[in-house]
C-alpha cells in the first residue's frame, strides 16, 4: 500500500480508460488487473464507461493526430478533483513510435499527467501501484 494513505479509504476510485492509439498491449494488462488474479475491485477500483463518473483517467497510447481533440475532451468532461495516469512507455515518451509523423504525444504535451507508469506494457502490479498513487493525490487534494 502506498505511503500516506489513511487506514480506510474515503472513496473508491473509479477509473476511466482511454485508448489514444495504443497497440492494445497496455489495455489488456489493464483488464488483466481487473480480473481474478489481481482483482482490483476488492479495493473498490472500478472501470467505468463514462468520463463523467471517473476520478482517474488512465491514458494509454502515443496520442495519434486524430485522437488529440478526443483525449482533451474526455479530460475536460471529468469532474474535479481528478488525476491522470499515463500507462505505458509509448504514452510517456513515444517508445518505438517516437519519430512517427502521425503522433502528437507524448501525453504530457496534451494533458497534465500526474503519474507515469512505465513498462511496455507495464505489469498489472505496476498499474495498480500507479492507481494507488493517484489515490494519495486525490486524498491530499480533498484534505485541503
Amino acid at each position: 500500500m502506498a505511503k500516506g494513505l489513511p487506514k480506510s479509504f474515503k472513496k473508491s476510485l473509479w477509473v476511466y480508460h482511454c485508448n489514444s492509439g495504443s497497440c492494445n498491449g497496455c489495455d489488456i494488462e489493464i483488464i488483466a488487473a481487473l480480473c481474478p488474479r489481481y482483482d482490483v475491485e476488492r479495493f473498490g477500483i472500478k472501470l467505468v464507461g463514462s468520463p463523467r463518473h471517473a476520478d482517474v483517467l488512465l491514458v494509454t497510447g502515443p496520442v495519434t493526430r486524430q485522437m488529440v481533440e478526443k483525449v482533451k475532451r474526455i479530460y475536460e468532461q471529468m469532474p474535479d478533483p481528478k488525476a491522470v495516469i499515463c500507462v505505458g512507455n509509448c504514452g510517456n515518451t513515444g517508445d518505438v513510435f517516437y519519430e512517427a509523423y502521425n503522433l502528437v504525444g507524448p501525453i504530457d504535451n496534451i494533458l497534465p499527467v500526474d503519474i507515469y507508469v512505465i513498462g511496455c506494457p507495464p505489469r498489472p502490479e505496476n498499474i495498480i501501484n500507479g492507481v494507488a498513487k493517484a489515490w494519495v493525490k486525490l486524498e491530499t487534494l480533498e484534505a485541503k
Partner: peptide, 12 residues
C-alpha cells in the same frame, strides 16, 4: 490511412 506510421518508421 496508416495510423501510427509504423511502416514508415520501419524504413528508417
Amino acid at each position: 490511412h496508416v495510423h501510427r506510421s509504423v511502416e514508415w518508421a520501419g524504413t528508417r
